[in-house]
Simulated scan of single mutants.
Amino acid sequence: MGLLENFSSGLFIIQSVVFLILLFVLGKFAWKPILNAINEREVSIQDALNQAQLARDEMKNLKAENENIIREAKAERDAILKEAREIKEKIVAEAKDAAKTEGDKMIDQARQSIQAEKSAAMADIKSQIGALSVNIAENILQQKLDSSEAQNALVENYLNKSNLN
């Protein structure tokens, strides 16, 4: 077993030397590129995370801007609607005032027309009554004054009245 022990310890030494040579070769040629690739990957991941954070921040800013724009648009819409309501109310009030004024004017004109027609009717009635009265008086006088005695009595009566005045 002595040889086997020597062989195994020699094998151990050879394996250790080969391992060290492999470590040296890997350290010289493989570890640096692997570590560089890992570092580059880490940097690119960090950059992607930073870009994602920037995008998130940008989205928050855009959302805040959109909310402000929406709020301003609503305020402007409310102002426009309020102004439209005020204009409508003003137009309606002006139309009511104009209609009332026109109605009052028409009523006054109708009253004046009625008064003029009433006056004309009264004048016409008075003239017709006057003409009718004259006709009636003529007929009565003609009937009373058919005789000459009645005519003489009437003339004397008028003369007496006019002498007294």
Rank of each mutant, 00 (worst) to 15 (best):
Lys88Pro: 00
Leu26His: 11
Asn66Trp: 13
Ala116Thr: 12
Gly10Ser: 14
Leu35Gly: 13
Glu86Met: 01
Val18Arg: 15
Gly10Lys: 15
Leu164Ala: 08
Ala153Asn: 13
Asn66Glu: 15
Lys126Trp: 11
Tyr158Gly: 08
Lys126Gly: 03
Ala73Trp: 11
Lys63Ser: 06
Gly27Pro: 02
Gly130Asp: 13
Ala73Gly: 06
Ala153Gly: 10
Glu67Leu: 15
Ile21Cys: 10
Glu65Cys: 05
Ser162Arg: 03
Gln53Glu: 10
Ala75Gln: 09
Asn163Phe: 08
Ile114Asn: 03
Lys96Thr: 05
Gln143Arg: 10
Arg56Thr: 06
Ala30Thr: 14
Glu40Lys: 14
Arg71Leu: 05
Arg85Thr: 13
Lys63Glu: 07
Trp31His: 11
Ile38Val: 09
Glu89Leu: 06
Gln151Met: 02
Asn68Arg: 13
Gln15Pro: 00
Gln53Tyr: 06
Gln51Lys: 11
Asp146Leu: 06
Ile114Gly: 00
Gln151Trp: 00
Gln46Leu: 07
Ser16Pro: 00
Ala121Asn: 12
Lys161Gln: 06
Phe19Arg: 05
Ala98Asp: 10
Leu3Ala: 04
Ile14Asn: 08
Ser133Thr: 10
Ala93Gln: 08
Glu5Cys: 03
Ser8Asp: 12
Gln115Pro: 01
Ser16Met: 07
Lys82Ile: 02
Gln128Arg: 15
Gln143Phe: 07
Asp57Pro: 00
Ala75Met: 05
Asn50Glu: 15
Lys144Trp: 12
Gly2Met: 10
Gly103Asn: 09
Lys96Gln: 06
Asn61Cys: 01
Gly130Ile: 12
Ile34Ala: 11
Lys100Ile: 09
Asp97His: 07
Gly2Asp: 14
Leu62Cys: 01
Lys32Gln: 12
